[in-house]
Amino acid sequence: MIAREWKATCPKEHEDGFIGYLYETGIKDTSDTKGFVGAQILKRDLGNSTEITLLTFWEDIECIKAFSGENISIARLYPEDEKYKLNPERHVKHYEVRENMWL
């Protein structure tokens, strides 16, 4: 299994709106892709802004390519991201999941 990590920051006043938009775009698009296993959205308070981390989980790299295109290190951004004054990372990180345990 492969974990794909993407991060962005946005002003606190746009946090809830952006997370809702993230469900409508990134989560919907990934969950409609063959080989998608799951996702987590994490948030961290940075004072005046919020850091949002999207972790998606995939069966393998080929499944990620079906979502992102051939260059899997480039973030897939959406047209209305600017509406939330988003400061997105342009690149994503990938990790091999060695263990996954939930209590």
Rank of each mutant, 00 (worst) to 15 (best):
G35H: 08
A39T: 03
K83H: 08
S68E: 14
S49F: 02
S73F: 12
E89I: 00
A8F: 02
Y84K: 07
A8Y: 04
K65L: 08
A3Y: 07
K83N: 02
L55S: 01
I52V: 09
A66D: 11
Q40W: 11
V97K: 07
R98S: 08
G69C: 15
K7A: 05
I2M: 13
F67M: 07
L103M: 06
D29A: 05
E51A: 09
Y23K: 08
L77E: 08
E80N: 12
W102L: 10
L46I: 01
E80A: 02
V37Y: 07
L54Y: 04
M101L: 15
K34T: 11
P79N: 02
K83A: 07
F36Q: 14
T33G: 10
G69H: 12
E15V: 10
M1V: 15
L103C: 01
R44P: 00
Y84D: 09
E89H: 01
P11S: 08
I41T: 01
K65R: 12
Y95P: 03
D16R: 15
V37C: 10
I64L: 10
I41M: 00
K43H: 11
G26V: 09
G26L: 12
S49K: 13
R76W: 01
G38L: 06
Y78G: 12
A66N: 12
K28R: 15
L55M: 11
G38V: 04
V92Y: 00
Y84R: 08
T30C: 14
I41P: 02
K85G: 06
